[in-house]
Write a protein that binds this DNA or RNA. Sequence first.
DNA 1: AATGAAAGTGATAATCATTCCTATTTTATT
DNA 2: AATAAAATAGGAATGATTATCACTTTCATT
Lengths: 121, 121
Amino acid sequence: MSRQKEVILGVLRAQRFHPTADEILLRARQRMPALALGTVYRNLKALCEEKKVRRIPMEDAPDRYDGFVEPHDHLVCTVCGKVYDVPPLQSKEALEAKLATRVDGYELKVYFTCPKCQAKN
Amino acid sequence: MSRQKEVILGVLRAQRFHPTADEILLRARQRMPALALGTVYRNLKALCEEKKVRRIPMEDAPDRYDGFVEPHDHLVCTVCGKVYDVPPLQSKEALEAKLATRVDGYELKVYFTCPKCQAKN
DNA sequence: AATGAAAGTGATAATCATTCCTATTTTATT
DNA sequence: AATAAAATAGGAATGATTATCACTTTCATT
């Protein structure tokens, strides 16, 4: 594991948040100023394949990345875009039973308006 | 509703499928050869806002569009990308109960390997 | 029928997240 | 230290989607 990869994973594990590749770059550069965005993307992809990191594909915004990979789903604020973790809302087994097929996985995003954004109206 | 918009909606309602903007353009041009891709995107966006069409955001491929808007979810083949309709697998109410929050909606995609693609191995 | 305002269009340029390319640097190995 | 292999930095390329804008179409009103 290269030093860059370690730093990137370190950023993602330092706190429970869901940054974009850009935000990861910014933070990682505090420790490694020459780090390139391409390197961030390349290592994020590798880390996802190694199941150390999870990508959260966003519909109308840059994808987010998650350094915590125990099963959980995401609650997304439609106003500010912030992402919250929630316990798993589905299970592969339940889906397989309902659909009567083998299932490879699922991607569930629940949309809501976070308390902060609600307060602003 | 402009003639272009009608044609685009017509394409989407003609059969139960989930084409990309490009595929919609191709089919619509059979009836309206001068139609522009920008016009397709513009009208798809409008139709989505009017709740006549539903966008299916894809993670690593162009988005799909769905002319049938009764509640249902999608089963996506990880190999060929084909999208199948399935009955709703969640309900806003159940999610609200589980999460103890108001919920605006959800987006669930279940991944599997379709029979055709399974057969090829 | 002529008008004028509003809405919609086609063509093309711009955007922007992500990927690709390549010369260079780092790392591991002998 | 020499060499090979792997990874990087930096920048250019890609490709889906949006924005722009001059021009047309629509349509209510005269």
